[in-house]
Each structure stands twice: as C-alpha cells, then as structure tokens.
Amino acid sequence: MTLHTDPAAAPSRRTKPRGALARLVADPLGALGLTLIALTVLGAALAGLSPHSPTGLSPLDRFSGPTAEFWLGTDNLGRDLFTRVLYGARVALALSIGATALALVFGLVTGVAAGFGPRWADNILLLILDAMKSVPTVMLALVLVTFTGPSLWAVVLVVVLVNGPAYARMARTQTLAIRNADYIEAERSLGAGGARIVFAHVLPNILGPILILAAMDIPIVVGIEAGLSFLGLGVRPPAPSWGTILYDGFSYIRDSAWMVIAGGIPIVITALGFTFLGEALRDTFDPKLAKR
C-alpha cells in the first residue's frame, strides 16, 4: 500500500534534485570522509615540496623528536618522518587504487564469464570463489607472500584475491539476471554480440553498487599493505610506506614513540576517510544497499 509511509524512509528535509557532490557534502559523514581523503591526496601531491629526502640517511639527526625542522621527528636512520609520511601517502594511494582497479577487472571478467558461460563452468567458478573466501584473509596474505617473496606485487596479488571474489559474485548475479531477460533474447536474435550486451546492459547496472563496494574496500587494501609492510613482508625498505615506518618504529617504541605515532595516524586518517565516504555514497545513492 502506498499510504504506508515508513517514517524513516521519509527524510525530514525536502530533497531537491542536486549535484552528486553537493548531496555527498550535505551528509556530514560524506563531508568528513572527503576532507580526510583530500588531506591524504594533498599530502601525496605536495610530498615533493619537502626540503628533506624520504630515503636519504642523516646519521647526525637520528632519533630526533618532533622539532621545527622535523615536524614529526626522525627515525633510527635520521630520515625526516613527515617527509616519509607524505611519500608514504603516494605509495598507499597508488597501491590501493591500482590494486582495487585490478581486483575490479578480475571480478568483472570472471563474474561476467561465469554468468554467460555454461552451467558447469559457473558451478566450478563459484566453488573456487568459495574456496578463496574460505581461507582467512591474513593467512591468504601470508602464504602468498611466503611463496612470491615480499614485494609490492605480492601485495597487489593479495588484494585481488581477497577483494576480487565479492566483485565477481556481484557481476555474476547481475549477468545472470540480464542474460535471461526478454530484451536480451531479442537483441541476441538481432545479432548483438556478447561484448555489446555486457557493455550496454551488464556494466551500467552494476557499476554503481560495485564502485561503492570498492570505495568501502579501500581501507581493507590500505590495511593489507600496511599490515604486510609492518611484518616486513610487503613494501621493501627503504621505500617509504606507512607500514614500514611502523616496522622501523616498533623496535624503538619505548624511547621514540613518535615513530609509531607518525606511521599509524595516516593509516587511521585514510582508512576512516574512505570508509566514511563509502558509507555516505551508499546512503546517498544506493538505498537498497543501505538497508542491509
């Protein structure tokens, strides 16, 4: 019945059609998320302006606490932590966006292939996705890194295998729904190819929800990179990554706590930024997802 208006479904403010960005900013959580992300992006962009080198050693400046020259202090090798944090933002952003993009491509391709493929192939793929999901995230990451050796690419591979299955399932469900729709049958009989159907019907339908999911997954990616680097199994020193700053700093946590503080805060900022943005995106653009 149309008259049963759910009180919560009816926002108290009058919604006028507005730009997407304006709607996001109107949500306090979205505004906060965007601000935190902007902070990270700004840091990455301005890293080059720092007078210090992110990797250059300066033995005379070792273990300096925060000063006017070294805003966040220096580490055990005398490197300026603020500069390393800024360059670390480049690593974190490039990696999380790059790896997420690869995971998306992997998910879309396998999902669409499963949806269009024969039933047995679909079943096998589902089972494999299940198996990937059944290995606890941390163990999956550790075992892959063990066999590939610690590197940036190992981290990317972990991200694809951890986050990819969810995108694949989403793409598969949508493809199956589309595949059996009457209008697709009609288009097929008119000679439309698989690629055309995918680009014209499947992608537009899932791109929104899948991108929101991906935005919410970015903190996971940041966590995977920083976590593996913290264990010394991710980004290799001396490259500046927030995880390696924590790795270096953890040995000196008793006397030089500023090192772990410098390494952890940007992880918190970025993780919260993308999470808040994802929440706001979902609430604003995908009420169906929000209900879950």
């Binding site: 959580l29 903190p219 920083a226 953890f250 503080i261 992880i267 993780a271 919260l272 999470t275 808040f276």
Partner: peptide, 26 residues
C-alpha cells in the same frame, strides 16, 4: 553507527600498537 564503521576501518595492528603505547608503556 559512526563508531562501528570506524573500528571496522582501522586495521587491528594499528589499534594494537596504540593500545600498547598508551596502556602498557605510558
């Protein structure tokens, strides 16, 4: 709701390091 998503977002090892720093060391 905000606290829930916040604790879900921050990696557990960062929380662990800060807990150690605050409650054990300091």
């Amino acid at each position: 709701s905000v606290l829930s998503v916040s604790v879900m977002a921050v990696p557990s090892f960062v929380i662990a390091i800060y807990l150690l720093l605050i409650f054990s060391i300091n």
